[in-house]
Nucleic acid binder design. Structure first.
Length: 169
DNA sequence: ATCGTCATATGAA
DNA sequence: TTCATATGACGAT
């Protein structure tokens, strides 16, 4: 029995020196983070978010600014990963365990979750990550040192890695 | 170095 | 079931 909760979906901006990100909240926590774009700049913030959401958002904002500066966030807001399949959530959870400044290959990540052959599926799950930056999908590279892909554009991936002083072969 | 091809897991239509 | 993947390994240029 699911409580028929109102299923909040509140979007709030976070301004950074790279533009305005957009954080989305459900009633369980942060559900999405969008990179700056024409769309996110346009979207008008929710009028009066409740106190809990405001508190989460403050944490998200600090975490994002830290992450963009290449520092490990002190705290993250609750992450609502319920939109993902069980497999995707396993991948996303494993992503959160990659320390700042380190990288894995898609194959290594597949091993880490006990499915050494699910390399392509891991790539797919990374691409479906709804909370980039804070769920560090950018720390996953191809096995030969290439960048691999990044839904928001490889420039962002390079930038995030550079902030963490990851040197690319 | 680059390219084509195949194997394999997962998810969406 | 068919199609698409943010891969990886391998062999032929």
């Amino acid at each position: 029995m699911q409580t028929k909760s109102p299923n909040r979906d509140i979007a709030l901006p976070i301004s950074t020196n790279a533009g305005s990100f957009l954080a989305r909240y459900s009633d369980r926590g942060l559900v999405g983070l969008d990179f700056p774009s024409a769309k996110t700049q346009r979207e008008s913030p929710a009028a009066a978010p409740d106190a809990v959401t405001r508190r989460w958002h403050a944490t998200t904002g600090r975490a994002l600014l830290d992450a963009l500066a290449g520092r490990k966030p002190r705290a993250l807001p609750p992450l609502d990963l319920s939109s993902g399949t069980p497999f995707q959530r396993e991948v996303w959870t494993a992503l959160g365990r990659i320390p700042c400044g380190e990288t894995l290959s898609y194959g290594e990540l597949a091993h880490a979750i006990g499915r050494p052959k699910a390399v392509r599926a891991v790539g797919g799950a990374c691409g479906a990550n709804p909370i980039p930056v804070l769920v560090p999908c950018h720390r996953v590279l191809a096995a030969d040192g290439r960048l691999g892909g990044f839904t928001a554009g490889l420039d962002w991936k390079r930038r995030l890695l550079k902030a963490e002083r990851v040197t690319l072969g």
